[in-house]
Amino acid sequence: MSGQPVVPMVDAQGIHKFFGELHVLRGIDLRVERGEVCVLLGPSGSGKSTILRCINEMEQISAGRLYVNGELMGLREVTRNGKTELHRLPDAQIARQRSRIGMVFQRFNLFPHMTALENVMEAPRQVKKVSKPDAQKLAREQLAKVGLTDRADHYPSQLSGGQQQRVAIARALAMDPELMLFDEPTSALDPELVGEVLAVMKQLAESGMTMIVVTHEVGFAREVADQVVFMDDGLIVERGTPDQVIGHPVEQRTRDFFAKVL
């Protein structure tokens, strides 16, 4: 990949995904540049979350190629007798690839037996083998970024949903990821708590983080996204700037969707 001047952060080529008989992704091509914020919109069950889960290899893709920062994900190419075969990478390699991608979940998935600080320290300690004092320092910095310095010693059960999600973002950032994936990060929140999480995400976008966000917050997409992708039924229907896709959709399905949600 060194021949190319600019390697996209995410380059998905013809991704298909089957769950048994169910054809969830039906040929997805997606390119996300470094520093870009890409928002995936679309009705439930359109395959948005599945794309995220394929990018960080929670799900194995059924067909296609997926590159993150120029590196083929989950597979390695082996050329034998002039034929190229794909082999699944060993688990340790997959774990290493995952460690460079941060993921934020709808239901936060904080570790309930650890304080906020311990939640953020855990992956640097266990995966990167950072020393305890360094991990603590790093974790405090990350919690400060999401505005939760004073909640460091609280357990998740003692935090509001919005605070929990901000800890989850800090936890992902502590691994110094090159890409952040957000899977409906505000869908489980009370309306009054959505704002604080979106503010943290916006700040993160402004700092130049590459982000792929699955959300129903059309306002966030309009304001923060560089690229909006509208999906339906396992296919990308329309993509472009927020103004193109949300403001002036061309496809009928896109228009129908925004007519309902806006």
């Binding site: 960080n56 929670m58 774990a95 460690s99 993921m103 904080l110 995966v127 989850a168």
Partner: peptide, 8 residues
């Protein structure tokens, strides 16, 4: 999922 996504 959260733990494996962190690379554990």
């Amino acid at each position: 999922e959260a733990a494996t996504a962190l690379g554990m």
